[in-house]
Design a protein around this nucleic acid. Structure first.
Length: 274
DNA sequence: AGTCAAACCTGGGCGC
DNA sequence: TGCGCCCAGGTTTGAC
């Protein structure tokens, strides 16, 4: 499910609910989702801790707890983290419930069981796998056109593969990469170091644009995604190529195609993406 | 360095 | 109704 705009929306919605609340109990129904420490230790450590803040880095949610602890969550494909009333019936895919001291709960639900939790000392949160090697935040000031130009020049891989690489830019996923490439008029198989300065600038702009519009639409709910209050997003209504093979391109009218690249689908328009 | 496939899972959609 | 296939917002690992 979630790419940067979805995780950012979950972060914002949970940040309105959780800070100030105390975790007074935990139920773990699927122990393997706890990466570290052991499920027993996880329960022991998390209980009676206060939630201080909710943050995001790439596609990771960072929940700061009292006593210097950090709860790190990755939703992977179908994970949901939702602030829920206690009387709500539990779904068959709810794998973890935090009980909060205001009578509400924070539930983790994940049909495909790929999502993961880590509980670590806040100072050591970079020990979480993948987190320490994350690339730049595309909506932050450290993502600059100069950086982007220099990096693209160094890489010989395909654009689609490169933009999905979380150690290069953090937070992009399959949907927003395809949408950014289409808006920039660039083919997903294009070799990164062959872009003209104008093409690099266009891509730089469209990456930020699709992410910002995605956040403004509260995420893309093509299937399972909901925010921290259980609400779906609307960016699926604005998609131009993702999931649209066989349909006409809204810019040039040619039929949108699907390509297989490194095990992932790439949707693109053969007419206007060069 | 880059490319690919497989693994982790459940479920929806399609053709037959 | 059912079977067999392919597909799915991600990441990791290991082979070439």
């Amino acid at each position: 499910m979630p790419e940067l705009p979805e995780v950012e929306t979950v972060k914002r919605t949970l940040k309105e609910k959780l800070p100030g609340l105390t975790i007074c109990g935990v139920n773990i129904y699927l122990p393997k989702i706890i990466q570290t420490p052991s499920p027993e230790e996880f329960c022991h450590l998390v209980v009676d801790k206060r939630i201080l803040d909710v943050g995001r880095r790439g596609k990771y949610l960072l929940i700061s707890l009292s006593r210097g602890l950090m709860l790190v969550v990755h939703l992977r494909m179908t994970g949901r983290l939702v602030y829920t009333a206690t009387d709500e019936p539990r779904s068959k895919h709810t794998h973890l419930i935090f009980h909060l001291n205001n009578g509400h709960q924070l539930r983790f639900t994940d049909m495909r069981q790929f999502g993961r939790f880590w509980l670590v000392p806040a100072k050591e949160f970079k020990t979480v796998s993948g987190l320490k090697d994350l690339g730049v935040e595309p909506l932050s000031g450290e993502f600059t056109i100069d950086f982007f130009k220099k990096e693209l020049k160094k890489r010989r891989t395909r654009l689609k593969t490169l933009l999905l690489d979380q150690t290069f830019i953090s937070g992009l996923g399959n949907i927003y990469v395809d949408e950014a490439l289409h808006r920039a008029g660039l083919h997903p198989s294009r070799q990164a170091n062959t872009l003209t300065p104008g093409e690099v600038e266009a891509l730089f702009q469209t990456i930020r644009e699709v992410l910002e519009e995605g956040i403004a639409s509260r995420g893309t709910s093509v299937r399972d995604y909901v925010d921290g209050t259980g609400q779906a997003g609307t960016f699926q209504e604005k998609l131009r190529v993702y999931g649209k093979s066989g349909r006409p391109c809204m810019r040039c009218g040619k039929t949108i195609e699907r390509l297989r690249l490194g095990g992932r689908s790439a949707y693109f328009c053969p007419g206007c993406q060069k």
